[in-house]
Amino acid sequence: MTRLGMVIDTRRCVGCQDCVVACKTENRTPEGYNRDWITYATKGRFPTLSMTIQSERCNHCDDPPCVSCCPTGASHVHPWGGVVLIDHDACIGCKACVVSCPYDARYIHPDGYADKCTFCIHRVERGQDPACVSVCPTHCMHFGDLDDPESEVSRLLASRPHHANLPEAGTGPRIFYLD
């Protein structure tokens, strides 16, 4: 099986928001709505501080609650790659998925349907990386098949300590952060 996911190197990331801006232009997200975003967490007391920066988005979970709770089947897992997608025409905008997502990755588009990151599947189909990955000036983002042990993402996960967000939610997130 192909299981698409992302590995993001928090050491390299400078939190410049290029991924956020590239997603906006690539996917024409409406003003004020984002499919990806940056979190900055500063710990410690001045001057003994540390900061973690993360580029975040839908985790395209292995066991996505947004899909199981969808009353119309609009939220679905794509048969190839396991990408979680939304059929906008079948979506009734009930927000069940928005509430169910532990990552707060979804929003209701002004046109009335639920929307979120698609891993830029329209690009991936053509052999390109998602827009956020391909724009990143620090090369901190990597995209590929987590089930292929030879893929760049698998090799990075095998070689470096890493974490996912909210593993306790039990949804099987597929965005990993190299520590």
Binding site: T2, I86, H122, V124, G127, D129
Partner: peptide, 14 residues
């Protein structure tokens, strides 16, 4: 593209 992921063949939401 060379080195990229295989192209989807299904009628995906892409």
């Amino acid at each position: 593209a060379a080195g990229g992921l295989p192209r989807l063949t299904s009628t995906s939401a892409a």
